[in-house]
Design a protein around this nucleic acid. Structure first.
Lengths: 214, 214
DNA sequence: GAGTTTTTTGAATATTATTAACATTATTTG
DNA sequence: CAAATAATGTTAATAATATTCAAAAAACTC
């Protein structure tokens, strides 16, 4: 049906932050909050918060504010956190390993159903509670399981190959950690996590500091 | 010295991408490129690339384009990649572990000089080439070593405590992976890597797709 | 070597995002 | 129950970002 007018990605990226703070409030038993109070917590302006939320409907009540539980639940729905996802991870070394073992994702409904690597018998995995399958089996596995999200934590040389498998198998969401720009069709969502580039902004800052002191 | 007029963070975050592509070109032996060709590679518009670069000076030559080697080197300088940094990692589990072992950072001049954890004798580390020190020694270590960047990959409950140590010891750049908003003084650069929130944008997309198909 | 083409520059314009203002509505208080 | 207060949703203003376009410089081409 008529898709609600395209909301910009900058707004979308703030939603998880609101969601997280609302979750914290919920745990503390606070069940009412104003945009101003949320502003104090998050650092975004109250006006921006109201504007962001109003992209998705009027969740607040004039003279009262927002009901924490309701808003948390609604944001969860908007973000798709009210359902379960099956996730496969390609590349079990370092990052892939870390992501596979991180409990937070499972708690949020992202279930890692398969982990694949070119070297599944790598001694690194010995004695660890982690079954790693050979990458050769990735395609069949996806075809036989209902996989929603594909993670790429391989070396960058392998990344496009893995992405092609994901696309071929109909996966519509790819979470890419390889330092390479992948080519995927338009209808596939690609979220790149560029760790190096994030780190470089820190060195930019450090360098800039020094210049100022000249 | 007159600080070159503040360049926006959105521009800064594109620089490493340009830098990376230029490095690739360099390896291929290509030594000349136009903004249009860079646009084809990176997906940013040619005019945006030119505008971005002109924030830092006119690197291009009209009628010719940009010299790949020069531009790569200049961007490296701007990003502070022409020098070495000493990095400590607090939190050696999962992500901290992955980051410590990732070779790319060392190649870029980021040397991990210390890794700390609350449980340095964790059996996870047995047999691995990774000396993990107890977190209690973090402060002394930083004071006795010239540390430029502090990484936080601890549980979120510990994160602010670690950040406080970093700040107290004069570290001016913090790379935070914990899912929490840290409080640090203004002159300390804080770069947050929010993995969960990045993942949630994918589930947002998946949810949105379904709505469209209604 | 003159003319044509290429390509950057830099300024002007357009677009997008953020912040501020305000009218409206619910709640609370006396 | 009426007035005062609080806080939203919406519209308007401002700021930030991206694009377009005319001009100028360099490099080809014949």
């Amino acid at each position: 049906m008529a898709r609600e007018s395209q909301v910009s990605i900058t707004v979308i990226r703030r939603l998880p932050i609101y969601h997280r703070y609302l979750g914290d409030l919920l745990k503390k038993g606070i069940n009412r909050i104003s945009s101003q109070e949320l502003s104090n917590l998050t650092g975004f302006t109250a006006s921006q918060i109201r504007q962001d939320l109003n992209n998705f409907g009027g969740f607040g009540q004039q003279g009262y504010g927002y009901n924490v539980e309701d808003l948390h639940r609604e944001l969860g729905k908007i973000l798709g956190l009210d359902q379960q996802y099956n996730v496969v991870v390609a590349g079990a070394v370092n990052l892939g390993h870390a992501i596979t073992l991180y409990r937070g994702f499972k708690e949020a409904g992202f279930n890692i159903v398969g982990v694949f690597d070119k070297n599944p018998d790598n001694p690194r995995y010995a004695g660890r509670n982690l079954e790693v399958k050979h990458l050769d089996g990735l395609e069949d596995f996806i075809k036989n399981n209902n996989v929603h999200i594909g993670v790429i934590t391989t070396a960058k040389e392998l990344a496009q190959e893995v992405a092609d498998i994901y696309v071929r198998c109909g996966i519509k969401a790819i979470w890419n950690f390889a330092t390479i720009d992948l080519a995927v069709p338009e209808d596939v969502a690609l979220e790149n996590v560029r760790l190096s580039e994030s780190l470089y902004t820190l060195s930019y800052y450090l360098r800039n500091r020094e210049n100022i002191q000249d």
